[in-house]
Design a protein around this nucleic acid. Structure first.
Lengths: 194, 194
DNA sequence: CAAATTTCTTAAACTACTTCATTTTTAAAA
DNA sequence: TTTTAAAAATGAAGTAGTTTAAGAAATTTG
Protein backbone atom coordinates (compact mmCIF):
# COMPACT_ATOMS: atom_id res chain seq x y z
CA UNK A 1 0.00 0.00 0.00
CA UNK A 2 2.92 2.34 0.69
CA UNK A 3 4.38 1.43 -2.70
CA UNK A 4 2.23 4.08 -4.26
CA UNK A 5 3.60 6.84 -2.08
CA UNK A 6 7.16 5.69 -2.66
CA UNK A 7 6.51 5.84 -6.36
CA UNK A 8 5.13 9.33 -5.83
CA UNK A 9 8.21 10.46 -3.90
CA UNK A 10 10.51 8.98 -6.52
CA UNK A 11 9.11 11.34 -9.12
CA UNK A 12 11.17 13.97 -7.28
CA UNK A 13 14.06 12.19 -5.53
CA UNK A 14 15.54 8.75 -6.20
CA UNK A 15 15.64 6.48 -3.13
CA UNK A 16 17.73 3.49 -2.12
CA UNK A 17 15.94 0.33 -0.93
CA UNK A 18 16.94 1.26 2.60
CA UNK A 19 15.37 4.71 2.26
CA UNK A 20 12.22 3.28 0.73
CA UNK A 21 11.82 1.01 3.71
CA UNK A 22 12.43 3.89 6.08
CA UNK A 23 9.95 6.28 4.53
CA UNK A 24 7.42 3.51 3.95
CA UNK A 25 7.40 2.73 7.66
CA UNK A 26 6.63 6.37 8.49
CA UNK A 27 3.30 6.35 6.67
CA UNK A 28 0.40 4.48 8.14
CA UNK A 29 -2.69 3.47 6.28
CA UNK A 30 -6.03 4.65 7.65
CA UNK A 31 -9.53 3.90 6.37
CA UNK A 32 -11.90 6.84 6.52
CA UNK A 33 -15.67 6.56 6.14
CA UNK A 34 -17.71 9.06 4.15
CA UNK A 35 -18.55 12.14 6.26
CA UNK A 36 -15.76 11.39 8.71
CA UNK A 37 -13.47 14.29 9.69
CA UNK A 38 -9.69 14.07 9.62
CA UNK A 39 -9.11 17.70 10.62
CA UNK A 40 -11.28 19.83 12.89
CA UNK A 41 -11.03 23.43 14.14
CA UNK A 42 -9.25 23.97 17.45
CA UNK A 43 -7.41 20.65 17.27
CA UNK A 44 -3.80 20.80 16.19
CA UNK A 45 -3.28 18.88 12.96
CA UNK A 46 -0.85 16.07 13.70
CA UNK A 47 -0.65 14.56 10.21
CA UNK A 48 0.07 15.28 6.61
CA UNK A 49 -2.37 13.18 4.57
CA UNK A 50 -1.79 11.53 1.21
CA UNK A 51 -4.99 10.32 -0.43
CA UNK A 52 -4.42 6.76 -1.57
CA UNK A 53 -7.97 6.39 -2.79
CA UNK A 54 -11.03 8.54 -2.20
CA UNK A 55 -12.04 12.19 -2.03
CA UNK A 56 -11.80 14.91 0.59
CA UNK A 57 -12.86 18.47 1.06
CA UNK A 58 -11.23 21.15 3.25
CA UNK A 59 -13.44 24.04 4.26
CA UNK A 60 -13.89 26.84 6.75
CA UNK A 61 -17.14 28.09 8.23
CA UNK A 62 -17.72 31.84 7.94
CA UNK A 63 -19.30 34.13 10.54
CA UNK A 64 -22.76 33.68 9.07
CA UNK A 65 -22.46 29.90 8.97
CA UNK A 66 -21.90 29.48 5.24
CA UNK A 67 -19.02 27.22 4.42
CA UNK A 68 -16.21 27.95 2.03
CA UNK A 69 -14.25 25.17 0.36
CA UNK A 70 -10.50 25.73 0.44
CA UNK A 71 -9.36 22.59 -1.31
CA UNK A 72 -10.34 19.27 -2.71
CA UNK A 73 -8.13 16.19 -2.81
CA UNK A 74 -8.64 12.94 -4.68
CA UNK A 75 -6.30 10.00 -5.39
CA UNK A 76 -2.62 11.03 -5.23
CA UNK A 77 -3.21 14.48 -3.77
CA UNK A 78 -2.23 15.79 -0.36
CA UNK A 79 -4.61 17.47 2.05
CA UNK A 80 -4.14 19.12 5.44
CA UNK A 81 -4.66 22.46 7.16
CA UNK A 82 -1.15 23.73 6.35
CA UNK A 83 -1.30 26.63 8.74
CA UNK A 84 -2.08 24.20 11.50
CA UNK A 85 0.33 21.46 10.46
CA UNK A 86 3.36 23.57 9.64
CA UNK A 87 3.16 25.79 12.70
CA UNK A 88 1.62 23.10 14.93
CA UNK A 89 -1.18 25.44 15.92
CA UNK A 90 -4.92 24.79 16.32
CA UNK A 91 -6.67 24.28 12.99
CA UNK A 92 -9.26 26.63 11.55
CA UNK A 93 -10.47 24.22 8.87
CA UNK A 94 -12.50 21.07 8.63
CA UNK A 95 -11.29 18.28 6.38
CA UNK A 96 -14.00 15.75 5.65
CA UNK A 97 -14.24 12.61 3.50
CA UNK A 98 -16.65 12.88 0.57
CA UNK A 99 -16.43 9.12 -0.06
CA UNK A 100 -15.18 6.08 1.81
CA UNK A 101 -11.43 6.59 1.46
CA UNK A 102 -7.98 5.31 2.30
CA UNK A 103 -5.26 7.74 3.30
CA UNK A 104 -1.59 7.42 4.18
CA UNK A 105 -0.67 9.57 7.15
CA UNK A 106 2.69 10.78 8.28
CA UNK A 107 3.13 12.12 11.76
CA UNK A 108 4.56 15.63 12.27
CA UNK A 109 7.42 14.35 14.43
CA UNK A 110 8.25 11.53 12.02
CA UNK A 111 8.36 14.01 9.14
CA UNK A 112 10.73 16.30 11.06
CA UNK A 113 12.95 13.34 11.81
CA UNK A 114 13.03 12.20 8.18
CA UNK A 115 14.00 15.69 7.05
CA UNK A 116 16.65 16.02 9.75
CA UNK A 117 18.26 12.65 9.01
CA UNK A 118 18.36 12.70 5.26
CA UNK A 119 18.95 15.51 2.81
CA UNK A 120 16.82 13.74 0.19
CA UNK A 121 13.68 13.93 2.28
CA UNK A 122 14.31 17.57 3.00
CA UNK A 123 14.53 18.06 -0.76
CA UNK A 124 11.32 16.16 -1.34
CA UNK A 125 9.31 18.24 1.12
CA UNK A 126 10.87 21.42 -0.23
CA UNK A 127 9.75 20.52 -3.73
CA UNK A 128 6.17 19.74 -2.77
CA UNK A 129 5.94 22.95 -0.76
CA UNK A 130 7.24 24.95 -3.72
CA UNK A 131 4.80 23.30 -6.07
CA UNK A 132 1.98 23.90 -3.65
CA UNK A 133 2.98 27.53 -3.50
CA UNK A 134 3.04 27.87 -7.28
CA UNK A 135 -0.32 26.12 -7.50
CA UNK A 136 -1.94 28.47 -4.99
CA UNK A 137 -0.49 31.43 -6.81
CA UNK A 138 -2.26 30.33 -9.98
CA UNK A 139 -5.51 29.96 -8.09
CA UNK A 140 -5.27 33.47 -6.65
CA UNK A 141 -4.61 34.84 -10.13
CA UNK A 142 -7.54 32.95 -11.59
CA UNK A 143 -9.87 34.25 -8.89
CA UNK A 144 -8.78 37.83 -9.49
CA UNK A 145 -8.98 37.73 -13.28
CA UNK A 146 -12.02 35.64 -14.09
CA UNK A 147 -15.77 35.88 -13.68
CA UNK A 148 -17.70 33.13 -11.90
CA UNK A 149 -18.63 31.54 -15.20
CA UNK A 150 -15.06 31.57 -16.50
CA UNK A 151 -13.78 30.10 -13.24
CA UNK A 152 -16.21 27.23 -13.63
CA UNK A 153 -15.39 26.62 -17.28
CA UNK A 154 -11.65 26.60 -16.59
CA UNK A 155 -12.03 24.27 -13.66
CA UNK A 156 -14.08 21.78 -15.64
CA UNK A 157 -11.41 21.75 -18.33
CA UNK A 158 -8.54 21.36 -15.87
CA UNK A 159 -10.03 19.06 -13.25
CA UNK A 160 -12.92 17.12 -14.78
CA UNK A 161 -12.31 14.15 -12.45
CA UNK A 162 -12.86 16.37 -9.43
CA UNK A 163 -15.95 18.05 -10.83
CA UNK A 164 -17.56 14.65 -11.28
CA UNK A 165 -16.84 13.38 -7.79
CA UNK A 166 -17.72 16.42 -5.75
CA UNK A 167 -21.15 17.77 -4.72
CA UNK A 168 -22.24 20.94 -6.44
CA UNK A 169 -22.55 23.11 -3.33
CA UNK A 170 -18.95 22.23 -2.44
CA UNK A 171 -17.69 23.07 -5.91
CA UNK A 172 -19.62 26.34 -5.89
CA UNK A 173 -18.13 27.42 -2.58
CA UNK A 174 -14.67 26.44 -3.85
CA UNK A 175 -15.12 28.62 -6.92
CA UNK A 176 -16.42 31.51 -4.83
CA UNK A 177 -20.10 31.55 -5.79
CA UNK A 178 -23.42 30.25 -4.50
CA UNK A 179 -24.76 26.83 -5.39
CA UNK A 180 -27.78 28.49 -7.02
CA UNK A 181 -25.59 30.51 -9.31
CA UNK A 182 -23.51 27.51 -10.31
CA UNK A 183 -26.71 25.62 -11.03
CA UNK A 184 -27.74 28.39 -13.40
CA UNK A 185 -24.37 28.44 -15.16
CA UNK A 186 -24.56 24.71 -15.70
CA UNK A 187 -28.08 24.73 -17.03
CA UNK A 188 -27.40 27.62 -19.33
CA UNK A 189 -24.54 25.56 -20.77
CA UNK A 190 -26.71 22.51 -21.31
CA UNK A 191 -29.35 24.62 -23.00
CA UNK A 192 -26.75 26.16 -25.30
CA UNK A 193 -25.44 22.76 -26.36
CA UNK A 194 -28.76 21.38 -27.60
CA UNK B 1 24.76 44.74 2.62
CA UNK B 2 24.37 40.96 2.60
CA UNK B 3 24.49 40.98 6.40
CA UNK B 4 20.81 41.64 6.47
CA UNK B 5 19.96 38.59 4.42
CA UNK B 6 22.26 36.40 6.51
CA UNK B 7 20.46 37.64 9.59
CA UNK B 8 17.20 36.79 7.86
CA UNK B 9 18.34 33.25 7.01
CA UNK B 10 19.59 32.73 10.56
CA UNK B 11 16.06 33.15 11.87
CA UNK B 12 15.52 29.67 10.44
CA UNK B 13 18.90 27.90 10.31
CA UNK B 14 22.13 28.67 12.19
CA UNK B 15 25.14 29.16 9.93
CA UNK B 16 28.89 28.85 10.43
CA UNK B 17 31.13 31.75 9.36
CA UNK B 18 32.11 29.68 6.35
CA UNK B 19 28.49 29.19 5.33
CA UNK B 20 27.69 32.86 5.85
CA UNK B 21 30.50 33.77 3.47
CA UNK B 22 29.29 31.22 0.97
CA UNK B 23 25.66 32.30 0.93
CA UNK B 24 26.60 35.98 1.09
CA UNK B 25 28.61 35.63 -2.09
CA UNK B 26 25.61 34.14 -3.91
CA UNK B 27 23.49 37.25 -3.51
CA UNK B 28 24.27 40.30 -5.51
CA UNK B 29 23.08 43.77 -4.79
CA UNK B 30 21.13 45.58 -7.49
CA UNK B 31 19.74 49.09 -7.48
CA UNK B 32 16.34 49.45 -9.11
CA UNK B 33 14.77 52.74 -10.11
CA UNK B 34 11.09 53.51 -9.59
CA UNK B 35 8.96 52.09 -12.45
CA UNK B 36 11.73 49.70 -13.48
CA UNK B 37 10.72 46.07 -14.13
CA UNK B 38 12.55 43.12 -12.63
CA UNK B 39 10.21 40.48 -14.10
CA UNK B 40 8.37 40.64 -17.41
CA UNK B 41 6.00 38.24 -19.20
CA UNK B 42 7.58 35.79 -21.63
CA UNK B 43 11.03 36.11 -20.08
CA UNK B 44 12.10 33.29 -17.80
CA UNK B 45 12.69 34.59 -14.29
CA UNK B 46 16.32 33.95 -13.45
CA UNK B 47 16.36 35.34 -9.90
CA UNK B 48 14.74 35.13 -6.53
CA UNK B 49 14.64 38.66 -5.15
CA UNK B 50 14.99 39.78 -1.56
CA UNK B 51 13.95 43.39 -1.00
CA UNK B 52 16.70 45.06 0.98
CA UNK B 53 14.99 48.42 0.85
CA UNK B 54 12.10 49.65 -1.27
CA UNK B 55 8.74 48.50 -2.56
CA UNK B 56 7.59 46.29 -5.42
CA UNK B 57 4.38 45.14 -6.99
CA UNK B 58 3.74 41.92 -8.92
CA UNK B 59 0.77 41.96 -11.28
CA UNK B 60 -0.79 40.31 -14.28
CA UNK B 61 -2.69 41.97 -17.10
CA UNK B 62 -6.12 40.52 -17.85
CA UNK B 63 -7.72 40.05 -21.26
CA UNK B 64 -9.41 43.43 -21.11
CA UNK B 65 -6.23 45.22 -20.10
CA UNK B 66 -7.01 45.77 -16.43
CA UNK B 67 -4.22 44.81 -14.14
CA UNK B 68 -4.46 42.62 -11.10
CA UNK B 69 -1.95 42.85 -8.30
CA UNK B 70 -0.74 39.47 -7.11
CA UNK B 71 1.69 40.57 -4.42
CA UNK B 72 3.45 43.45 -2.82
CA UNK B 73 6.87 43.31 -1.25
CA UNK B 74 8.63 45.87 0.94
CA UNK B 75 11.80 45.67 3.06
CA UNK B 76 12.64 42.08 4.05
CA UNK B 77 10.11 40.40 1.78
CA UNK B 78 10.73 38.19 -1.22
CA UNK B 79 9.20 38.72 -4.61
CA UNK B 80 9.31 36.75 -7.87
CA UNK B 81 7.01 35.02 -10.31
CA UNK B 82 7.20 31.64 -8.54
CA UNK B 83 5.65 29.70 -11.38
CA UNK B 84 8.33 31.06 -13.64
CA UNK B 85 11.25 30.78 -11.23
CA UNK B 86 10.54 27.34 -9.80
CA UNK B 87 9.78 25.66 -13.11
CA UNK B 88 12.12 27.90 -15.14
CA UNK B 89 9.35 28.72 -17.56
CA UNK B 90 8.39 32.04 -19.16
CA UNK B 91 6.79 34.46 -16.70
CA UNK B 92 3.20 35.63 -16.86
CA UNK B 93 3.65 38.46 -14.39
CA UNK B 94 5.24 41.87 -14.25
CA UNK B 95 7.21 42.84 -11.17
CA UNK B 96 7.82 46.57 -10.98
CA UNK B 97 9.47 48.90 -8.47
CA UNK B 98 7.11 51.34 -6.76
CA UNK B 99 10.04 53.30 -5.31
CA UNK B 100 13.78 53.52 -5.90
CA UNK B 101 14.87 50.27 -4.32
CA UNK B 102 17.76 47.96 -3.52
CA UNK B 103 17.34 44.22 -3.93
CA UNK B 104 19.54 41.20 -3.29
CA UNK B 105 19.29 38.68 -6.10
CA UNK B 106 20.19 35.04 -6.11
CA UNK B 107 20.58 33.23 -9.40
CA UNK B 108 18.53 30.08 -10.04
CA UNK B 109 21.64 27.97 -10.67
CA UNK B 110 23.41 29.29 -7.58
CA UNK B 111 20.36 28.49 -5.47
CA UNK B 112 20.24 24.92 -6.79
CA UNK B 113 23.92 24.53 -6.02
CA UNK B 114 23.53 25.83 -2.46
CA UNK B 115 20.68 23.40 -1.83
CA UNK B 116 22.60 20.50 -3.35
CA UNK B 117 25.77 21.15 -1.38
CA UNK B 118 24.39 21.82 2.05
CA UNK B 119 21.43 20.35 3.88
CA UNK B 120 20.96 23.59 5.83
CA UNK B 121 20.21 25.62 2.73
CA UNK B 122 17.76 23.01 1.55
CA UNK B 123 16.07 23.36 4.92
CA UNK B 124 15.99 27.12 4.65
CA UNK B 125 14.33 27.14 1.24
CA UNK B 126 11.91 24.44 2.37
CA UNK B 127 10.86 26.59 5.31
CA UNK B 128 10.27 29.71 3.27
CA UNK B 129 8.29 27.77 0.69
CA UNK B 130 6.13 26.25 3.44
CA UNK B 131 5.54 29.63 4.99
CA UNK B 132 4.69 31.10 1.64
CA UNK B 133 2.21 28.30 1.10
CA UNK B 134 0.56 28.87 4.47
CA UNK B 135 0.44 32.60 3.77
CA UNK B 136 -1.24 32.13 0.39
CA UNK B 137 -3.71 29.75 1.97
CA UNK B 138 -4.77 32.46 4.40
CA UNK B 139 -5.19 34.91 1.56
CA UNK B 140 -7.43 32.53 -0.40
CA UNK B 141 -9.55 31.99 2.71
CA UNK B 142 -9.82 35.72 3.33
CA UNK B 143 -10.90 36.35 -0.26
CA UNK B 144 -13.59 33.68 -0.06
CA UNK B 145 -15.00 34.70 3.31
CA UNK B 146 -14.93 38.47 3.35
CA UNK B 147 -16.62 41.33 1.52
CA UNK B 148 -14.55 43.99 -0.23
CA UNK B 149 -14.89 46.31 2.75
CA UNK B 150 -13.83 43.65 5.25
CA UNK B 151 -10.87 42.70 3.10
CA UNK B 152 -9.71 46.29 3.15
CA UNK B 153 -10.23 46.72 6.91
CA UNK B 154 -8.33 43.51 7.66
CA UNK B 155 -5.50 44.46 5.37
CA UNK B 156 -5.09 47.88 6.94
CA UNK B 157 -4.90 46.28 10.37
CA UNK B 158 -2.42 43.63 9.30
CA UNK B 159 -0.19 45.51 6.87
CA UNK B 160 -0.44 49.24 7.60
CA UNK B 161 3.13 49.81 6.34
CA UNK B 162 2.20 48.45 2.94
CA UNK B 163 -1.05 50.39 2.71
CA UNK B 164 0.86 53.62 3.27
CA UNK B 165 3.51 52.97 0.65
CA UNK B 166 1.41 51.65 -2.18
CA UNK B 167 -0.81 53.54 -4.67
CA UNK B 168 -4.52 53.08 -4.19
CA UNK B 169 -5.26 51.54 -7.58
CA UNK B 170 -2.65 48.86 -6.87
CA UNK B 171 -4.08 48.10 -3.44
CA UNK B 172 -7.59 47.95 -4.88
CA UNK B 173 -6.58 45.46 -7.54
CA UNK B 174 -4.75 43.40 -4.92
CA UNK B 175 -7.87 43.25 -2.78
CA UNK B 176 -10.02 42.34 -5.79
CA UNK B 177 -12.00 45.53 -6.29
CA UNK B 178 -11.89 48.70 -8.39
CA UNK B 179 -10.02 51.81 -7.34
CA UNK B 180 -13.31 53.73 -7.37
CA UNK B 181 -14.89 51.33 -4.93
CA UNK B 182 -11.90 51.43 -2.61
CA UNK B 183 -12.03 55.20 -2.71
CA UNK B 184 -15.62 55.09 -1.55
CA UNK B 185 -14.87 52.64 1.25
CA UNK B 186 -12.11 54.90 2.48
CA UNK B 187 -14.16 58.06 2.41
CA UNK B 188 -17.09 56.40 4.07
CA UNK B 189 -14.71 55.43 6.86
CA UNK B 190 -13.38 58.94 7.24
CA UNK B 191 -16.91 60.33 7.34
CA UNK B 192 -17.90 57.84 10.03
CA UNK B 193 -14.96 58.79 12.22
CA UNK B 194 -15.75 62.50 12.44
C1' DC C 1 8.03 76.55 -10.74
C1' DA C 2 4.92 75.66 -14.55
C1' DA C 3 3.19 72.04 -17.53
C1' DA C 4 2.15 67.41 -18.13
C1' DT C 5 0.89 63.17 -16.39
C1' DT C 6 -0.74 60.15 -13.06
C1' DT C 7 -3.72 59.19 -9.25
C1' DC C 8 -7.90 59.94 -6.62
C1' DT C 9 -12.82 61.38 -6.00
C1' DT C 10 -17.75 61.62 -6.84
C1' DA C 11 -22.05 60.40 -8.81
C1' DA C 12 -25.41 58.00 -11.65
C1' DA C 13 -26.58 54.02 -14.33
C1' DC C 14 -25.82 49.24 -14.69
C1' DT C 15 -24.89 44.10 -13.98
C1' DA C 16 -23.02 39.92 -12.02
C1' DC C 17 -24.08 37.61 -8.41
C1' DT C 18 -26.83 36.83 -3.95
C1' DT C 19 -30.82 36.00 -1.14
C1' DC C 20 -35.08 34.12 -0.19
C1' DA C 21 -38.73 31.04 -0.97
C1' DT C 22 -40.62 26.95 -3.22
C1' DT C 23 -40.42 22.66 -5.94
C1' DT C 24 -38.14 18.74 -7.87
C1' DT C 25 -34.61 15.32 -7.85
C1' DT C 26 -31.36 12.34 -5.75
C1' DA C 27 -29.40 9.83 -2.12
C1' DA C 28 -29.47 7.88 2.63
C1' DA C 29 -31.64 5.55 6.20
C1' DA C 30 -34.83 2.64 8.30
C1' DT D 1 -39.15 -0.48 -0.45
C1' DT D 2 -40.95 3.16 1.75
C1' DT D 3 -39.69 7.22 4.45
C1' DT D 4 -36.67 10.88 5.44
C1' DA D 5 -33.25 13.82 4.58
C1' DA D 6 -29.97 16.15 1.60
C1' DA D 7 -28.86 18.26 -2.74
C1' DA D 8 -30.12 20.62 -6.96
C1' DA D 9 -33.26 23.59 -9.83
C1' DT D 10 -36.01 27.63 -10.69
C1' DG D 11 -37.95 32.25 -10.30
C1' DA D 12 -38.34 36.87 -8.44
C1' DA D 13 -36.47 40.60 -5.86
C1' DG D 14 -32.44 42.72 -3.88
C1' DT D 15 -27.49 44.38 -3.43
C1' DA D 16 -22.44 44.63 -3.55
C1' DG D 17 -19.48 46.02 -6.59
C1' DT D 18 -18.59 47.74 -11.68
C1' DT D 19 -18.62 50.95 -15.39
C1' DT D 20 -18.46 55.27 -17.43
C1' DA D 21 -17.51 59.95 -17.36
C1' DA D 22 -15.70 64.17 -15.77
C1' DG D 23 -13.39 67.05 -12.47
C1' DA D 24 -10.00 67.74 -8.51
C1' DA D 25 -5.74 66.66 -6.31
C1' DA D 26 -1.24 65.10 -6.19
C1' DT D 27 3.19 63.82 -8.30
C1' DT D 28 6.51 63.88 -11.84
C1' DT D 29 9.15 66.06 -15.31
C1' DG D 30 11.31 69.56 -18.05
Amino acid sequence: MTEKIIEYIEQFVKLTDEEKKQVGSCFKEVKIKKRQFIVQPNFTTKHRNYVYKGAFRAYVVGDEGQDHTINFAIDDWWITDYNSYIFQQPATMFVVALEDSIILQIDYEAEQELKRQNHKFETFFRIIAERGLAFQQRRIISNLIHTAEERYENYVLKYPQIVQRVPQYALASFLGMTTEFLSRIRNKRVAKKS
